[in-house]
Design a protein around this nucleic acid. Structure first.
Lengths: 147, 147
DNA sequence: TATTGTTATACTCTATAACTATA
DNA sequence: TATAGTTATAGAGTATAACAATA
């Protein structure tokens, strides 16, 4: 069957199509492990950090009250744990557990495999070109971002 | 201030960074009009269609029961309307209202403007290259998709 | 007083299961 | 019986506002 709309009308549309494709890929894989995208991101951030709730909220761009429930559910599943913050008895640090780290690793591997397959349609040199173009957009966007 | 991580480690990471950036751009603009991403998508689909509930659920990849509430809320805001399906008294067609179409247009214009600004960091010929690369990925993914 | 975090409350989004009305 | 759609129910995710404990 011949395909319709082999190329997007323009770059903006194409980028959004790709964005949604990646988003749904991540959502599908996360759901396969009873996780949401936000839970995957939570575990990802904790890979090399042991932040407090406020810092975590900033990373995820969530209100601190939203984070309480998010961490509650992850903690109940044994994926993260709350530990006292040294030197400030108000504070709580969030730490990923071994189980959480394992699960996060599995999800990341599946996601990487899935997207890697997707981009094999491009030659190595085309992938390098794409990497460069995407990097330049992201670098410019970081310079633009407020806060 | 010197920027850290000027380029992503690899293409997969870069694509996900870009994907999240676009997702949050859309979410931010939608929120500015008291809309969610799914409501924006709903209005977008109705731009050139007058589908039944089941067809709409398929487009949005939602259960039909999820769609009832979604359409309820959009209808209460006057963005869409339910009309009887001609020839099948069980069926309902969903139609975007003039107000819904107007709002959808405003959101789309803002999103396009925002992303267009983002990609001005690339030259015209680089944007053309990026368009081609993205198109090829999407074309391959359409061929891969199941049913 | 200011900061860190939780709780109470309300709403959107989503799914599963049961239901109604029509075919 | 099968199909189109709604309703009942439950749970995740999110925000705002009020609160408690500590600084």
């Amino acid at each position: 069957m011949p395909k319709k709309n082999m190329q997007p009308l323009n770059l903006v549309d194409g980028l959004f199509q790709l964005s949604f494709l990646l988003h749904y890929t991540l959502a599908r894989i996360a759901t396969g492990h009873d996780l949401s995208i936000i839970q995957v991101r939570l575990l990802g951030i904790l890979r090399d950090r042991e932040p407090g709730m406020l810092e975590l909220a900033r990373h995820l761009e969530l209100e601190k009250s939203s984070l309480s429930g998010l961490v509650d559910r992850a903690e109940q599943r044994g994926l993260v744990e709350r530990i006292p913050s040294p030197g400030d008895r108000r504070g709580t640090r969030i730490r990923v557990t071994a189980q959480g780290r394992r699960l996060s690793g599995v999800v990341e591997a599946e996601v990487t495999a899935s997207v890697s397959t997707l981009i094999t349609v491009l030659s190595k040199s085309d992938r390098d070109r794409l990497t460069s173009l995407v990097s330049r957009i992201m670098a410019a966007s970081n310079g633009t971002k407020d806060g």
